[in-house]
């Protein structure tokens, strides 16, 4: 039994994938919790597709270098997020419709660009491969996590203020737009840094699913962030083992594990779960303190 758990990590590429994904599991979920609470979950969808054309251009210009593709991904991610916001402000259209439009185009152009460059496995790029985590990819993931956590700590107070009461922050400290932009930049960095191991489509999963599941486990903001990180770390460990033993791509294996934690929370978690609802209804009591999130 212990061999099943430990032996895979005697392989170098598995250790690199583990270290890289753990870095993402610590850096990503706190951002995911804010995305969920700020009603910006759709933005994560947009970014996972939006970075693809940048990665493609990076690959066309710089070859299969993680840094070239990563830089392209970051630029494309920021451009997509800004473009959708600007379109909705300029035309008065709803931002979610503009986001949906922009990311579909980004995905299509990304795939079109990649098809022009033979030798790139699209499935690996979209869904990840632990084998792809070479040293540069590991440094990228660890470096981004090292940058993102202190940066999030730095903007934590104004970010909470901007999420809860944007007018208050503007009145007390001038514009909140800089905080919003800094937050989005951190999200883009995390999404891009995970694409080698988890794939562009799945790296968002390690950020969002633990955050969505955390609602069933934690009451306060701090508790939700802590439980999201715990779920992500466990999912990385279990997911990578699944990936190794069942020969699955790492991204889907990790994301499916996270989904299992979500399902457990939905059914039996301490908050907003089926179990809690059943208990309340059998006690004949209205669900007090149901909250509204």
């Amino acid at each position: 039994m212990i061999h099943l758990l430990v032996d895979p990590f005697s392989l170098g590429f598995m250790r690199r994938a583990l270290a890289g994904c753990l870095a993402l599991a610590i850096a990503g979920p706190p951002l995911g919790v804010f995305l969920v609470l700020r009603r910006m979950s759709l933005m994560s969808d947009v970014l996972q597709h939006g970075i693809l054309p940048g990665i493609a251009v990076g690959a066309l210009v710089g070859g299969l270098s993680v840094y070239a593709m990563g830089l392209g991904g970051v630029l494309a991610g920021i451009a997509v997020a800004l473009l959708a916001g600007a379109l909705s402000r300029a035309t008065g259209a709803r931002e979610d419709s503009q986001l949906a439009g922009v990311y579909l185009l980004a995905l299509a152009s990304g795939v079109a660009l990649l098809s022009a460059r033979p030798g790139i496995d699209l499935a690996h790029l979209l869904f990840g491969s632990v084998l792809a985590v070479d040293d540069p990819a590991l440094y990228l993931m660890a470096g981004v996590a090292t940058l993102v956590l202190p940066a999030l700590a730095l903007i934590w107070r104004p970010l909470v203020l901007e999420s809860f009461d944007p007018d208050f922050l503007r009145a007390e400290a001038g514009s909140g737009a800089a905080i919003h932009a800094a937050f989005l930049a951190l999200v883009v960095l995390v999404v891009v840094s995970g694409f080698t191991a988890l794939g562009t489509l799945m790296s968002v999963g390690l950020m969002m699913l633990p955050a969505i599941a955390a609602r069933h486990w934690g009451e306060t903001l701090a508790a939700q962030v802590a439980s999201a990180v715990a779920i992500a770390v466990l999912s990385v460990l279990i997911g990578l083992l699944l990936s190794y033993h069942a020969d699955l791509p790492a991204g889907p294996a990790i994301v499916l594990t996270t989904g299992t934690f979500w399902a457990i929370g939905l059914l039996a978690g301490p908050r907003f779960s089926l179990r809690q609802r059943l208990r309340a209804s059998t006690a004949g009591m209205p669900r007090l303190r149901a909250g509204r999130d």
């Binding site: 609470l37 700020r38 107070r157 104004p158 909470v160 203020l161 999420s163 809860f164 009461d165 944007p166 007018d167 208050f168 922050l169 007390e172 400290a173 934690g218 009451e219 306060t220 903001l221 939700q224 909250g291 509204r292 999130d293």
Partner: peptide, 20 residues
């Protein structure tokens, strides 16, 4: 205009008053 579903305690909200 406030996001009341944000999981903050009452003490957290009052503490915002000292942000400046």
């Amino acid at each position: 205009t406030l996001e009341r579903a944000f999981p903050l305690s009452c003490a957290d909200v009052v503490a915002m008053g000292a942000y400046a």
